[in-house]
Amino acid sequence: MFKVLITGGAGFIGSFLAHKLVANGNKVIVVDDLSMGRLENLADINDKIVFYKHTVCDEQFMHDLLLKGDFDYIYYLAAVSSVADSVVRPWYTHLVNQESVVNTLEFIRANHLPIKKFLFTSSAAVYGNAADFPKTEDSHVDPLTPYAIDKYASERYTVDFGRLYGIPTVAVRFFNVYGPRQNPNSEYSGVLSIVTKCLKEDKPFTLYGDGAQTRDFVYVEDVVDALIKISTETDEPAVYNIANGDETPLIDVIHTYEDIARKKLNIIQKEARQGDISKSRADVSKLKKIGFEPQWSLHDGLSNYWKYYSEN
């Protein structure tokens, strides 16, 4: 049994990770200020975890927790996870998405905390519209927003703290993650959670651009399995893409979902938003080299998502 800290553990991906780690027999501690996460995401395991409603920006709280926690693994998912929000609130985003990360790494370094792995969750947003395609971990980066800038800086801090100070670290870049428990009620939600809500409630969906923008969608259960494998089965500080390795135009995804739901989506078209990326696809050969293969096709993932949302 390992002691595991998940920051942002009441969020969409964090809560799935918490469930999986608990099921695997680990002791899980979650820190989340619930600004984006939800307690109901952890309801099934509430009696099996330790939960702190707190911001990761509180240095004293985090230092005390790290010092007393004796953690084996730290999964750093706490973030302002919205590109649009970072454009509106760049300084606040920076405090959460970079300052808190570096502060945690520095405390681990200065106090020689004997962790097995610190895993930081970055984003495909760091690639921006750089011409390299598909995106490998060594591709050019072109961060277009405060969100992407902070994510890239924090992943570099994570990897280089590993290389400079011998701390076992790793960083991952999420592409478009979707699945149950994704919060559709925020205007900053993942696009598929908003599509799901609009389909279910027969509400109009706002499509920014012409729908030709492509994304590499990956189901949340595949993401969690990849996180655990990367944190436990890699040795060198590095960055890994987490994705399916596919490229699908958003409008095609919508049509597939309409077929699954047997409903037509009412689409309102608007101009593309500033900072939105036109094409996105991951090269996942590095992830496959450590033995990971995604198990969920887009159709199967959407079918499971629709079933969950229809029943809840």
Score class of each variant (00 low, 15 high):
Y73I: 14
K151E: 11
H19Q: 08
K203G: 03
K270N: 04
F118K: 07
F161H: 11
N312V: 14
Y165Q: 11
T158F: 07
G162E: 02
E201N: 14
P134Y: 01
K117C: 10
L207H: 03
P249W: 06
K200A: 15
Y127C: 06
D138E: 10
L67N: 14
Y309P: 13
C57K: 12
N46G: 03
A124H: 11
V28H: 00
S154G: 05
V284S: 00
K289H: 05
T158K: 07
E137C: 01
L65K: 10
L105H: 01
E201L: 15
Q182E: 15
I108Q: 03
K286F: 00
N41K: 04
T248F: 02
P168H: 06
M62G: 05
D276C: 05
I194T: 13
D300N: 10
V87H: 10
F205S: 09
K279E: 01
Q213R: 04
V80I: 14
V87G: 02
G14A: 13
S297C: 12
M36Q: 12
E99I: 13
L265F: 12
Y165E: 02
L227T: 07
F174D: 03
P204H: 08
D33A: 12
T121F: 10
E247Q: 13
V101Q: 07
L42M: 09
E155M: 15
D58E: 08
F205R: 07
F16P: 05
Y178C: 10
A171K: 04
D132A: 02
G11T: 11
D33E: 13
V177M: 14
K286D: 01
S285V: 00
T214D: 02
P168Y: 01
N241I: 00
K135H: 12
L5W: 08
V284N: 03
L67I: 14
V101Y: 00
T248H: 14
N176S: 14
E187Q: 12
P204V: 02
R281Q: 15
T196V: 06
I45R: 00
Q274T: 06
S231A: 15
I49H: 02
T256S: 07
L42G: 02
S154D: 09
D283F: 00
R262Q: 13
D138L: 13
K197A: 07
W91Q: 12
F174K: 02
T121Y: 10
A43K: 13
E221V: 08
I268S: 12
F175R: 07
P134M: 00
